[in-house]
Design a protein around this nucleic acid. Structure first.
Lengths: 335, 335
DNA sequence: GACTGGCACTCGACCAGTGTGAGTGCCAGG
DNA sequence: CCTGGCACTCACACTGGTCGAGTGCCAGTC
């Protein structure tokens, strides 16, 4: 691929992202120092159009980048724009005040939405290597009971169970037994050991044990799935004009936790970009997702990212996402 | 106020809500059986306009209800439209499948958004009369520890604390002491008793005790504040045309937990309606909020509601909000 | 006194016709 | 291979004209 043609594509993407209007050959040579005439550029543009990198909304209009064009831009033409010192300080300061995990996640969403001016999505971190620290059985009222699971990362999960008419002694015996069996194990190991455990219980308490084990099993599974927090939805407001295509479907997609999880799930440690049609979800084929994994490598990790129009400023957005991911990782590692 | 004038106002509101277009005198007499001529209606309309109940977008256009007009409509003219049997069944069935509190709230939001076709807001229920069932102190890694609080309603809250270099025996002794002191108390009572407790501890463990007590105190306070869940934001998509005035500000307001809590906070047991300007928050002066308290009277309660355009169908919306509130209350009382 | 029919008036919505200009593709010449 | 020139296209803005829904007012009627 010709060097100048690449330069032209880069120029088109840059200008279009700035103005959101089709860009023509003359404006191109004027705004960028291409040192050739508009006619030459036109030939290049025709070629780029043939190859599918740009398109014309209608004859006799300027060109607009296609998804394929953005892809090439992101892969080969864009340099991630480093953030200014002031921006980095602001990010760091904003996150530093967090008191617990909830707070970290909340702050991260707000921060990400603010620095990118887009819709931010943050997944709660999963501590892969976390082991079970404690299992509790608590009677609430009558036969209503609660199984509480605490892991070494400090995550607490609970599940309601029916205790039947068991006595308190049975309950505390079972509690002790459960703890002996699963404390120190990962959720996966614990789930495997639960089955055998019920067998060992005296026959008359077996019903209760099975019940509790089922509740605990639910918790162990739930532990690996995670919650997702969304923020900055108001930022969609900037694209009033393309409401039907750009806003409505995105709003709908944002309601689906599952969709969001899948969106973020594919992010690798470096910043990942999915452009328009590359997104599997139909509602997001007019949007782009910039995501990154965060956390301290093996211990704790999850993904975060932003959703915006395909015509977003990729270099800046990617830089911001990467920076936020790094700073959150740092905070997590410290605290 | 003249009977017929009220009828005219009711007719205007009804028609405008249906069509979202200014309604004129002729259409009015045709669609509603007013049994007078358009000219007569025009006189009434002029009077209603003088009194501030309706307005003209421009000369020679039909009339549109003002906030004041909607208020009168809601207070004196509207009858809450009872839901059909099928609708009631659907609501009941949808909620019945819930497994725990989280699930109830999630389902309620979805349900409310769906039946009203508007943005739904549900506050997590606060169990006023809940007492503390158990306090746990758990060591995570090194000096990182966790205080876990479980109340009789099955709510679980946790808080990270620094354990310093205390021994496991000290920890379990303290745990026992704390439990003896606060189990069975309401958060308020417990908070009051915590102060004295630290005094009684042997001097060398007092630092740790104070630390833990502080963590627990945080939890006790947090217990009374609550979370809010929002859903059905995609329903805003119907009002594409009035984006700037009707959607953007609402999206922004929905991001603020505090605003939402205050919005719902004022709801009484019956359905409450706040129309346009009546909302304190600037961003919501073009929207209406229909809210209701739910829960089983004294035990457990919170608020839920919807946010929509001032030109919403009040009778239906109020009916739906009321119905959902009642069914959720029922589910909460049962489980 | 309340209602009605008639009338003049207003003003946004819609439509067709027109000009403008940004932008293109193509071609012949340097 | 690049360039200047030229013919062509087409969205968009502007114009003026018509239409019709809607109003306010007034004189007349029950």
């Amino acid at each position: 691929m010709d060097d100048r043609k690449l330069a032209v594509l880069r120029a088109i993407v840059t200008d279009y992202v700035r103005s959101r209007e089709p860009v023509g050959s003359r404006a191109l040579v004027e705004r960028h120092r291409l040192d050739v005439s508009p006619a030459t550029i036109r030939n290049d543009m025709a070629a780029l159009e043939d190859e599918g990198y740009i398109a014309q909304p209608h004859t006799s209009a300027g060109r607009v980048p296609t998804d394929k064009g953005y892809r090439l831009f992101v892969d080969r033409l864009a340099q991630i724009k480093p953030l200014s010192r002031a921006e980095r300080c602001a990010i760091s300061a904003f996150l530093a005040g967090a008191v617990d995990l909830d707070d970290i996640v909340t702050r991260t969403v707000r921060l990400l939405a603010k620095v990118t001016s887009q819709v931010a999505i943050v997944q709660y971190p999963v501590v892969v290597s976390a082991v079970i620290r404690q299992v509790d059985l608590i009677r609430l009222n009558g036969s209503r009971g609660l199984v509480v699971l605490v892991n070494s990362a400090g995550a607490v999960r609970q599940h309601h169970v029916d205790l039947g008419d068991c006595r308190d002694e049975d309950l505390s015996a079972l509690r002790q037994r459960l703890n002996q069996a699963v404390v120190g194990l990962t959720p996966g190991q614990a789930a495997a050991r639960l089955g055998g455990l019920v067998e060992q219980v005296e026959p008359d308490a077996r019903g209760l044990a099975a019940n509790l084990a089922a509740g605990l099993a639910d918790l162990l599974v739930a532990d690996s799935s995670t919650r997702v927090v969304v923020g900055g939805v108001g930022n969609l407001a900037r694209f009033t004009d393309q409401f039907e295509t750009a806003i409505k479907p995105v709003l709908e997609a944002l309601e689906e936790q599952v969709v969001l999880l899948r969106l973020l799930g594919e992010a690798t440690s470096e910043v990942t970009v999915r452009i328009g049609q590359e997104n599997e979800h139909v509602n997001l084929t007019a949007a782009s997702v910039v995501a990154s994994r965060y956390g301290d490598s093996d211990e704790t990790w999850a993904s975060l990212g932003v959703v915006g129009p395909t015509s977003m400023d990729y270099p800046s957005t990617m830089a911001s996402v990467r920076a936020v991911a790094r700073y959150v990782s740092q905070i997590l590692a410290e605290g």
